[in-house]
Simulated scan of single mutants.
Amino acid sequence: MTPAAVAFEAIYQAEFDVVMAYFARRTADPQTAADLTADTFVAAITSFSTFNRSKGTARSWLLGIGRRVFAQHCEAVTRGRDVVVRMHGRRVLSGHDIDDLVGRIDAERKGRELIKEAAAALGVSSGALRIRLFRAHGKLRGQA
């Protein structure tokens, strides 16, 4: 084994229980604690060449990596919950509903193309034409 591999193995042997305990205090699931510990040591071994003993102990270096691994885990869990919350209130669309939405999207696309053509014919930007149409529509609603 290389000197770096021997050094890392010594750190792994000495600090494994500390890192595992760190995650065990933060999660109730033993499998999650084991996964996070493994992720921490994978990150540590890939960045071992940058470890500088003069800047701190191996334990503090590993726990710093562990903090980042745990933060990423929490972020992923939160994103997953957000998706569930967003999806919870939605209904499943029927084939008819989907066809209707596709038709509306196509109509909107055609409308945007017509606005671009009309704006070009009038010599204004499409945004300016949309504003003019919006104002005209508002005036018409006020007269009705």
Rank of each mutant, 00 (worst) to 15 (best):
M1E: 07
M1L: 05
T2R: 08
P3Q: 09
P3A: 14
A4H: 14
V6Q: 14
A7F: 08
F8A: 07
A10E: 11
A10S: 12
I11W: 02
I11K: 01
Y12V: 04
Y12M: 02
A14H: 14
E15V: 03
E15R: 12
E15K: 08
F16D: 03
V18G: 01
V18E: 09
V18P: 01
V19I: 14
V19G: 06
V19P: 05
M20K: 15
M20P: 02
F23I: 04
F23T: 03
A24M: 05
A24Y: 03
R25S: 10
R26E: 05
R26P: 03
T27K: 10
Q31G: 06
T32E: 14
T32I: 08
A33W: 12
L36D: 11
T37A: 06
A38R: 07
D39N: 15
F41M: 11
F41T: 08
V42L: 13
A43L: 09
A43F: 12
T46W: 09
S47T: 08
S49T: 12
S54K: 08
K55S: 02
K55D: 00
T57P: 00
S60W: 00
S60A: 15
W61N: 00
L63I: 04
G64K: 12
G64A: 07
G66V: 02
V69E: 01
A71G: 06
Q72G: 11
C74G: 04
E75A: 10
E75F: 10
A76G: 06
T78Q: 04
T78P: 00
G80F: 02
R81F: 12
R81H: 11
V85C: 02
M87I: 00
M87D: 12
G89E: 07
G89L: 02
G89K: 03
S94D: 14
H96S: 02
D97A: 05
D99G: 04
D99Y: 00
D99I: 02
G103D: 03
R104Q: 09
K110Q: 08
K110F: 02
K110R: 15
G111A: 11
E113H: 03
L114R: 15
L114S: 10
I115W: 04
E117Y: 07
A118R: 07
A118L: 11
A120W: 12
A121G: 11
L122P: 03
L122T: 06
S125A: 12
S125M: 04
S125N: 04
G127K: 14
G127I: 07
G127E: 15
A128K: 14
A128R: 15
L129D: 09
R132C: 07
R132D: 06
L133N: 09
F134W: 04
F134K: 10
R135S: 02
L140D: 03
L140Q: 09
L140G: 03
R141Q: 13
Q143D: 03
